[in-house]
Design a protein around this nucleic acid. Sequence first.
DNA 1: CGTACTATTGATAGATATCAACGCTGGTGG
DNA 2: CCACCAGCGTTGATATCTATCAATAGTACG
Lengths: 279, 279
Amino acid sequence: MQLLNPMVRKLEGFTRLSDVERTFLQEVTGLARRVEARTTLISAGDEPSGALLILEGLACRYMQRKSGRRQILALLIAGDTCDFESFRRDRMDHSIETLSPCRIAWITPETNGRLQQHPNLGSASRTSAQVNEATLHAWMMNVGARTAVERLAHLFCELYVRYRVVGQTQGQSYELPLRQTDLAEIAGLSGVHVNRSLQELRHKQLIELRNRRLVILDWSGLQTLAEFEASYLHVKNANLISIDAPLKEVKTEAVMPGQLSAFAEGSLGTVQIRRPLRH
Amino acid sequence: MQLLNPMVRKLEGFTRLSDVERTFLQEVTGLARRVEARTTLISAGDEPSGALLILEGLACRYMQRKSGRRQILALLIAGDTCDFESFRRDRMDHSIETLSPCRIAWITPETNGRLQQHPNLGSASRTSAQVNEATLHAWMMNVGARTAVERLAHLFCELYVRYRVVGQTQGQSYELPLRQTDLAEIAGLSGVHVNRSLQELRHKQLIELRNRRLVILDWSGLQTLAEFEASYLHVKNANLISIDAPLKEVKTEAVMPGQLSAFAEGSLGTVQIRRPLRH
DNA sequence: CGTACTATTGATAGATATCAACGCTGGTGG
DNA sequence: CCACCAGCGTTGATATCTATCAATAGTACG
């Protein structure tokens, strides 16, 4: 079997799931298909007939102007779903596209109906929708009220937490298969300016970014610069603590790709459930 | 009795309602209270214990940085609700404040539960949530991918359609109780720049704006400039047609405050239901 | 008639976009 | 194995947009 379904990890970050529910999610996962990078999954104007679940890779929602300029509205990472709640929407107002090679499960309305009947799954998926909205708020704040450097810093913080939840961080680093152009479309900037802003972040010893891998050199510095507050991501305290702790201890020490911190989640290829702690 | 409940008008823009449902909404409205401008209704960090419904006036959701700089995330006009779906959110990530004097109904979780049981009301309120999300997308597009002038133009188009749905337009004008500073916080701009951008819109003969009243002089010009597509607001075709038609006929002719177009909805103080047309 | 906002204006600084060139890297085919 | 190519990253020069600061003008209201 493959890596534990990231959706299980994500939803368990919101609520405790029963074995039945966990199994149900695993089943849904079975019907996955591979899609290459830069593939349009859903176009604006389509009538969405179901939902999709990202199992691996990175995708995005975006809108585009007539000029071709596009704005990325959200990033979808492993464990993220979209359009669970939007079967009633007659036309998509935005499009969805893969940014890296992905593995994706299509979820039919019926499957979704069954999912909603499992009490914890229903609850968790609604929480997930809340988090999506809060994330949009954070992005709006980013684009509307932060400088270029701050926007990137905030994005990197957010992604670190999100990847961590689904076990896709290695120490203080994670794989980030985005071009600078993509970052520009996320942050509402030009590609050139993203390049220069990245240099500033590197110069400040906050991050490293090369070969599609982002290393956070100074988590608290990055957080402070971005005024990042993880609470909107709804990660439970137990998990948040495990995020902060190791980072404070090895604050300025770079962690190489593949190296695992003492608190590391299961490495790729290992099946390991992080049991949510309840007080 | 007062003006027909704007929420009835709004939801009837999404779905046909039964008499029982309409009456139910009217009842909910009964418990309204007046709030003066610039009053905080909910602060970031609160545990929201219910929802609120705007019956009159203008309010907003916003987030604020430590520096004090704030970003308005959404405008709430008559008929808009907030937090219907978010009882499970443990902490508000943003705040809500009135921008003008308002009349507001507080809706308890129980009332909301009863509301959701009416089939059309439940459906319509979910559609409403969809529209909120789509509106956030449009705003994100605004702030991330449009120039200052375009942002304002798009905002004015959106508000025209939204106000029209709840019968708060007079001809091609509507009351807009926002300061230029507020517009700045919506558009992610400085107040001074908003001032200059407004002048440009006026100079282009697209709008008039004085004494808190916005007049659209050239609807199609404004729409074109902003690349505004009303579809995300989910207003039914029947209603959209009635919006476009009169505007094309009197395209460049200013309509004075108080003057009603031939297609005008009920004026203030009159109870009038616009029956949704079904084909 | 002050007073307190709010809008407007001009001057200037800062942030970001655009354009064009160059460099690096990884793949591919001869 | 090397030369070429394509895509991306980087750099410098310049233009444009937007913010900031400070002063003035309206406007509403007591």
